[in-house]
């Protein structure tokens, strides 16, 4: 229903100060929202990076475990190699000593050297040669010596000498 000769003029909802306040408020709000958005995006990126880092850490842990296993294996191999090397050196030395022990008159046909002892097969011209030239040094090395002679057609003797209880290994009778 119209009663007035004129129509009311359109009015602003806010006064100048309120509008200014509103503009500042909107700007502040935009800044806060923008900063929040920035933080949110940054956080997302950091979470992604943390995820990636976790993956890398897991990967590195797995690699480290792998390397540790390899190191252990290498160390074991190295130990084994050293043991073999030592064994071989000892064996080599033992064989050299053994062959040094054997006089020229005696011929060895077979020799079996193991951890428990030494078994020698060979031919000797006489038992005395054997007893004086070979058995004496063997007795100084082994604690138990058992020799079995077999006569050959040419007058020589085949012998089998079983020597056990190496004094170096500390084995006692």
């Amino acid at each position: 229903m119209r009663y007035s000769f004129i129509h009311p003029k359109p009015k602003r909802r806010l006064d100048r100060e309120s509008r200014l306040l509103g503009v500042f408020f909107v700007i502040t709000l935009l800044m806060v929202v923008g900063f929040s958005l920035f933080l949110w995006i940054k956080k997302g990126m950091l979470v992604d990076e943390i995820g990636q880092m976790d993956g890398e850490i897991r990967h590195f842990k797995e690699e480290r475990a792998d390397y540790n296993r390899q190191i252990e294996r290498i160390l074991a191999l190295s130990g084994k190699y050293e043991a073999i090397q030592t064994g071989n050196t000892l064996l080599k030395e033992s064989i050299r000593n053994l062959f040094d022990l054997v006089p020229d008159q005696i011929t060895l046909t077979k020799a079996m050297l193991n951890r428990d002892g030494l078994v020698l097969y060979g031919v000797t011209p006489t038992k005395e040669v054997y007893n004086y030239l070979l058995l004496a040094p063997l007795k100084s090395v082994f604690q138990r010596n058992t020799t079995t002679f077999y006569p050959l057609k040419n007058g020589w003797w085949r012998f089998v000498s079983v020597n056990e209880g190496s004094m170096e290994s500390g084995e006692e009778e």
């Binding site: 009663y3 007035s4 000769f5 004129i6």
Partner: peptide, 10 residues
């Protein structure tokens, strides 16, 4: 700035 001008008869 006037928004309403009424007639006294109204």
């Amino acid at each position: 700035t006037f928004d309403y001008l009424f007639s006294p008869f109204v």
